[in-house]
Design a protein around this nucleic acid. Structure first.
Lengths: 335, 335
DNA sequence: TTGTAGGCGTTATCAA
DNA sequence: TTGATAACGCCTACAA
């Protein structure tokens, strides 16, 4: 049996208004009635109906999170950060697995809108005009994680990809590498592709190193399999390199796997640096040196921003999270 | 601006009842009014309020999922399966990260109850009496994934751990191994610990092999780090083994890592088989032979069971999913 | 085929 | 300090 505020009121011999006041920490009741009501609530095991509350308060204490693939270390780490912080503030989070190509994104946006969520967080997804229009119509605070929209004013939280890629490449150069390939994920991806390639290039430029376009492998996606194939391509081409910068840890792991299978010793004959610092980085052998993104924190920050926006009603400022190189075993130094 | 059914009714010159009927696929209106109303809805961009619907229908089209750690390949795979199937049926899923020790479980149960979710799925968590009492009071359909309750009648979906562990061990024995250690995760865990140890033992018995309790390493948890430590303990003890059965892929990866660092060649000098078949299994080198659990499917099945229970109002039957050995590179055959 | 009105479980505004 | 009562947005008898 599930009781309502009426049941409580009746049993406690007070009005529902009084019960409501007590429940919501308002004033306007004696200590004695409070005791009485609380006892009845306890006895009945009464639990306020969040749905009814949501209806009248226009506030569901719920946020929606759109993620291309939840079953992916990168995404699930971010999700976990979001969930943690949201929960701490009394919010629940609805997960929406939009799929790699974002095919269900509009659908989910619709659903979240009907559910009157208080905010939406979109992870790693390109924002099409279509999305923005819907988002705009819904008037729900939105923040982006690991993505950015140049066309639309949606605040984001991410690392500076260009900078991080610069750091990674620079790190390799500082270790004495001069012939460095890059496995670029999707080279046309405006978010995780292009900026990282730019970073790779600027690092070369800043060290007076020549850029060889041949050294940049576009493997289209950021997966393990793509990394394997990219590595095979590199071997095929007999590129004269000593190091690789991979656009994701998964790519790096795939590339390493292919290299090792071809008898290449890492890092003795080939160094490699990854991107993300997901758990895979420390689970492979040799463990992967990589550029760390504070994934969990990014999730937390995104949630914070959302609540800030809800509070103020204004668009908050975007946040650039700092990245850092985590040194492990895949990069050899020439010095 | 967000419109209500009233706005639609007014603008279409009909009553809200008519709009409601059209919206819900009921009968009782002319084709002409339907057209008109639909057009108005389109014009206004009206979206029904799911909260109000939930209040009156006593049905929120929402399910809650409790998971110890979402940022974990095992869990996120299951979650993804749940989400997919739920979404296909018009349900949204609220994720609840209960934490390793289940510290927030009761809290989440409370939250889900107040939110009047239509069902709850609990993944990989032991069901304490305290939980069951709350669950029982809430009268919300519940199903368990990868866990089971001997005390309480909650349906579950899982593989037969005992059987799967038997299969893994048997596989090693069939390959000619006779001295097989087991890294057992938490040996006192009634769900993922004990049954797997039993399976390991029965395989030995069925082959007339002696069981050496010394060969069973209790590493308390199922993590990568635990695997490393367990392996170090094995080396320390100078166990005379040719193979290891690890209770999770993460443990296996950790053990491999420690072994390789100690100059042991896998599988030449030491074979290893894991458990779960998470993505890590194919990302490490050599790739891990393991017992596959159909994680994604298990999530889907759990969701199906939940809806079945909601439909029929009865407790459905538990499902045992079949496991299978995925052969990769970490087990050597002596034949 | 259509509309009126009551109710879902709350919160909040008045009076008392 | 309290209690009616009107919303919140929707669904659904019951009438018309």
């Amino acid at each position: 049996m599930t009781y309502t505020i009426k049941d409580v009121a009746k049993k406690a011999n007070v009005s529902i208004a009084t019960v409501s006041r007590i429940l919501n920490g308002k004033t306007g009741f004696s200590e004695k009635t409070k005791k009485k009501v609380l006892r009845v609530i306890e006895e009945l095991g009464y639990q306020p109906n969040a749905v009814a509350r949501g209806l009248i308060n226009k506030n569901t204490q719920t946020i929606g999170v759109l993620i291309p693939t939840v079953s992916n270390m990168y995404a699930s780490e971010v999700l976990s950060g979001i969930e943690k912080h949201a929960n701490d503030l009394g919010y629940s989070v609805i997960v929406c697995n939009t799929g790699c190509v974002g095919e269900r994104t509009i659908h989910y946006l619709q659903v979240l809108s009907e559910r009157r969520v208080d905010g939406i967080i979109i992870v790693s997804e390109f924002i099409y005009e279509e999305y923005y229009k819907v988002l705009n119509d819904m008037e729900i605070p939105t923040v982006l994680v690991s993505t950015i929209s140049l066309q639309f004013p949606i605040p984001y939280v991410k690392v500076d990809d260009r900078h991080a890629a610069f750091s990674a490449t620079d790190y390799l150069i500082e270790k004495g590498h001069t012939n460095i390939a890059m496995i670029a994920g999707d080279a046309r991806d405006p978010i995780a592709g292009i900026p990282r390639i730019e970073g790779y290039k600027s690092a070369h430029l800043s060290h007076g190193l020549e850029i060889n376009e041949n050294y940049i492998i576009d493997c289209k996606i950021f997966s393990h399999q793509a990394g394997i194939e990219a590595m095979e391509a590199i071997l095929q081409k007999q590129l004269n390199i000593t190091a690789i910068f991979a656009s994701s840890d998964e790519i790096a792991a795939g590339a390493m796997s292919a290299a090792i299978r071809n008898g290449i010793k890492i890092p003795d004959q080939l160094s490699i640096i990854g991107y993300d610092n997901t758990k895979i980085a420390e689970m492979i052998i040799p463990s992967l040196t990589t550029v760390a993104q504070p994934l969990h924190d990014m999730g937390m920050v995104a949630a914070t921003m959302l609540f800030e926006m809800k509070e103020t009603g204004e668009v908050t400022q975007s946040r650039i999270m700092s990245h850092e190189i985590v040194e492990r075993e895949t990069v050899r130094s020439f010095f």
